[in-house]
Amino acid sequence: MEPKPKKLLDQVRDAIRLKNYAYSTEKAYADWIERFIRFHKLTHPREMNSPQIETFLTHLAVKQNVAPSTQNQALSALLFLYRNVLHIELTGHIDAVRAQRDKRLPVVLTKTETQQVITQMSGLHQMMAKLLYGSGIRLMECLRLRVKDIEFERCQLMIRDTKGNENRVTLLPQSIIPLLNQHLLQIKQLHQADLADGYGLVELPFALARKYPNAEREWYWQYIFPSENLSVDPRSKVVRRHHLDPSGLQKAVRRAATNADINKHVTPHIFRHCFATHLLEAGYDIRTVQELLGHKDVKTTQIYTHVLNKGPLGVRSPLD
């Protein structure tokens, strides 16, 4: 008897895992594909092509009023479905109505405001906030840091598998090193306790777990910011200690901004904006800042020149 063919969404999940995409991407892509199918009244994607994708994307922009990034994610999910799962070549150009992209400048705190927010925080969350501001890394890049990614002697952080699936090197603030060393001693004891209890596993990228069977127990592969509790991996069903959930720091930063009476929309990502802007204010070359941030195009970095503390575009007012 031939095995029953897998459902379409299960095939999508298999293809995503084969490419080692993040679990959050897997959930998002599966959700968009399901919404696409339901929008077209459960028509199988094999029976549809570019016109139906175009109609769905236009609906998102016109009726749902989604953000450009949301519409782009939906398009990426559908392109992944046709190219990597169904292996169907899309006919024609997808000319959907595009969601309007607002030309917004990033919210940036002054140096004083940044310090006020960080001062209102404490413990682990304060250390993470300092790392975001001092290194310019994204929240998820911070949470996914592993022990082996720290270069104490060189004062460097190795950021791996970034937003563009690339690696880069950025700064490790010297002032945070004593705190980080103390923190690593604590989580090493936690890891040793997990090993003694028969756990101590960590998720490894790509197929390293098969290539190096003992690597997932090694200390240098462990997350720098591990979760307080063990959990069941939703993919492999293995009990592991994952990294912290991003919501903890997000809430702590919002609470700190409120306590500091900062009347701006403050999130953990604002520290990345502050990192770039404050370096440019200090006179550092924009190409250097671009490299530290990991931007492929310097135009992405140039947006921070519009929010320097010298007025729009850095122009000095004639009144001054």
Rank of each mutant, 00 (worst) to 15 (best):
Q73F: 09
A74W: 04
A74T: 09
L75W: 13
L75K: 10
S76T: 11
S76F: 11
S76C: 13
A77T: 06
A77V: 09
A77D: 02
A77S: 14
L78M: 01
L78S: 04
L78P: 05
F80M: 08
F80W: 01
L81A: 10
L81H: 02
Y82L: 00
Y82Q: 00
R83F: 01
R83G: 10
R83S: 13
N84C: 02
N84M: 09
N84D: 15
V85Y: 02
V85R: 09
V85F: 04
V85I: 07
L86C: 10
L86H: 07
L86G: 00
H87P: 00
H87R: 15
H87S: 09
I88Y: 12
I88P: 06
I88R: 07
E89P: 06
E89I: 04
E89G: 12
L90M: 08
L90S: 02
L90T: 01
L90P: 12
G92H: 06
G92I: 10
G92C: 06
G92K: 05
H93R: 15
H93M: 08
H93A: 12
I94G: 01
I94C: 00
I94F: 04
I94L: 04
D95N: 14
D95Q: 14
D95Y: 11
A96V: 01
A96W: 07
A96S: 10
A96K: 05
V97T: 05
V97Y: 01
R98D: 02
R98K: 15
A99V: 03
A99G: 13
Q100H: 15
Q100G: 08
R101N: 05
R101D: 06
D102F: 15
D102N: 11
D102W: 12
K103F: 12
K103P: 06
R104W: 00
R104I: 04
R104L: 07
R104P: 02
L105H: 07
L105T: 07
L105I: 04
L105E: 09
P106K: 05
P106G: 04
P106T: 11
P106C: 14
P106N: 03
P106H: 12
P106W: 11
V107Y: 00
V107W: 05
V108W: 05
V108D: 02
V108T: 08
V108L: 01
V108H: 00
V108P: 11
L109D: 03
T110Y: 03
T110M: 04
T110Q: 03
